[in-house]
Simulated assay, not measured.
Amino acid sequence: MSLYFTYVMIGLAIAMPVGAITVEMTKQGLKNGFIHGWAVGIGGMTIDLLLIMALYLGLANFLALPYIQMPLWIVGAVFLLILAYDSIKNADKDITLAGEKVTKSFFSTYRNGILVASSPGNLVFWVSVFGAVLADSFAENGANQFIIVALGILTGILMHDIGLLTIVSLTRKVMNRNMIKWTSIIAGILLFGFACYFIYEFIIDLKNFI
């Protein structure tokens, strides 16, 4: 059990830094409430689970190859630029204030979570961080305890998502439509920033490759 709780803490630490999935989760949580914000988080965790399976099968190493990573950074940047544009353009749409009936479907926000998490650039980022932790645990603890380690990390990520969305849900109760609209615009700007980061990583990898 100590191994499990150790990796729960590591999962929390991995999820803490603000990333594209956190931005999208917060935006949807403010616009449509806890469940829709969590739907984004579940979409992200779906990709996390697939990454764990890929690493276990040895497929994640393929994404770590330099000539595979470089185009993925660019494609990932395009993914995030599209999401950033949509977030800013539709900032005043699909807003449901606390107490109002939500019209947006759970599946559509879950799909958003999958899209953000499966952005190629995001996959490269997570393989480098998330994959390194899992690869190290696989080497140290072997295949038998790999599942415990993976479950610990996923539990930590889940705890982070629930904690964040609880705060978002409480904040949403005192926010009006205009405040939520500007939050969506800020989220779009942040997503644009992550896209620029992916482009920067592409340039660095290209220089190193040449």
Rank of each mutant, 00 (worst) to 15 (best):
L3P: 01
F5Y: 14
F5H: 05
V8P: 06
M9H: 00
I10Y: 02
A13K: 06
A13L: 12
A13T: 05
I14L: 15
M16Y: 11
G19V: 07
T22P: 02
T26M: 14
Q28W: 12
L30W: 04
K31A: 10
F34A: 05
G37C: 11
V40K: 01
V40N: 01
I42A: 13
G44A: 15
G44S: 15
I47R: 00
I47Q: 00
L49N: 03
L50E: 00
L51K: 10
L51D: 08
L51E: 06
I52Y: 13
A54S: 14
A60V: 07
A64I: 10
A64Y: 08
Y67M: 08
W73G: 02
W73V: 02
I74R: 04
A77H: 06
V78K: 00
V78D: 00
F79V: 09
Y85G: 05
S87L: 11
K93P: 03
K93Y: 02
D94H: 13
A98H: 09
A98I: 05
G99E: 07
E100V: 09
E100Q: 15
V102S: 05
F106C: 03
S108G: 04
R111Y: 09
N112E: 11
L115V: 15
P120M: 04
G121L: 09
F125A: 08
W126A: 07
W126R: 08
S128H: 02
G131Q: 10
D136W: 04
F146G: 08
I147G: 07
I148G: 01
V149T: 11
A150N: 07
D161R: 13
G163V: 02
M175D: 01
N176P: 09
I180P: 08
W182P: 05
T183S: 15
I185D: 06
C196T: 13
Y197Q: 13
F198R: 00
D205I: 06
L206V: 01
